[in-house]
């Protein structure tokens, strides 16, 4: 076992971490701002991939898919918020949870009916094929591109939340919705937009994952579990937490792959259990609202 191998393994872990952050981000935003545990997250991720496939098929371009699919599915997310979730605000937090849980099943079945149960090819865009020599080893260009997109999305989110008036209102709204209403802010519009953004980012994750994981109706199942692990370790609702947790989980999986590869999936859950023992609210979590 050489230093080079360990270095390469570490890098693979960080790269995987970036993908996990992408996968978890939508779940984290929606929970952090709205307090909704979105169990349809995995299904929406999958629907995003299919939307990407559809747009790419129509336009012949991966780039259009990357832009349009998240917008379309984000709008679809707003419909879900407006007509399915909004009637449940103010009731038990279990209600949206059950609703999204069922919605996940409906979406998977709908995709099976529309696109069939078989997997469908999704090509890596020609411009992003091939490998790059990092000095310690070779790494696919596409995965480096995904890391770049994740960084860009994180930067935009951070700027949007911390540096704009909209972000200020969102943060205030998630801290105390009642006061915001008293101050005359239409909270329901705000939540509609936040939910749409969360779902849009989830769909973006699906489109980005499609050339790596192939597209099938069940592709979201494991994603839901991965996203929960990252979100729970980071602390429900904390963006910074999701980033740190994603990287930690990525490196943990990668290092386990080196020494005990058959444990590579289970290690995520073991890590989550361990962290919950030490820090019940996760690394960066505050006590969760409403839970």
């Amino acid at each position: 076992m050489t230093v080079q191998l360990i270095a390469m393994q570490l890098f693979s872990g960080l790269a995987l971490g970036a993908i996990l952050i992408m996968v978890a981000l939508g779940l984290s935003i929606i929970f952090g701002m709205l307090g909704i545990v979105n169990f349809a997250h995995g299904a929406l991720f999958m629907v995003g991939a299919y939307a990407g496939l559809y747009v790419a098929g129509l336009t012949g371009s991966f780039w259009w898919a990357l832009v349009l699919a998240p917008v379309l599915i984000g709008l679809f997310g707003m419909l879900i918020e407006r007509f399915l979730i909004r009637p449940l605000y103010g009731r038990s937090p279990d209600d949206p949870l059950l609703l999204t849980f069922g919605l996940g099943y409906v979406l998977v079945e709908a995709v099976r009916i529309l696109f069939g149960t078989d997997g469908i090819p999704f090509s890596t865009p020609a411009a992003l094929r091939g490998v790059v020599n990092l000095g310690i080893g070779f790494f696919p260009l596409y995965r480096l591109f995904v890391i770049g997109v994740v960084l860009a999305v994180l930067l935009l989110l951070w700027l949007g939340l911390e540096r704009t008036k909209f972000g200020l209102i969102v943060r205030a709204g998630s801290a105390d919705p009642l006061i915001m209403r008293v101050l005359g802010v239409d909270i329901s519009k705000l939540w509609l937009v936040v939910f749409g953004i969360g779902v849009g980012i989830t769909a973006l994750g699906g489109v980005l994952a499609a050339p790596m994981r192939n597209v099938s109706p069940e592709m979201g199942t494991l994603v839901l579990a991965e996203a929960f692990v990252v979100t729970v370790i980071g602390g429900m609702g904390s963006l910074a937490g999701a980033v740190i947790a994603g990287l930690i989980v990525g490196v943990a999986v990668s290092m386990t792959s080196l020494f005990a590869p058959e444990m590579a999936t289970i290690v995520m859950f073991a890590l989550m259990a361990l962290i919950l023992l030490v820090r019940p609210n996760g690394l960066y979590g505050r006590a969760a609202p409403g839970l």
Binding site: L5, L16, G137, R213, V253, A264, I266
Partner: peptide, 20 residues
């Protein structure tokens, strides 16, 4: 011999070992 979990979504972390 590298064992991977059944139904794994990502195989990238097994590949450095394979290459080495």
């Amino acid at each position: 011999e590298i064992l991977h979990p059944f139904g794994a979504a990502d195989y990238s972390t097994f590949i450095p070992t394979i290459l080495s």
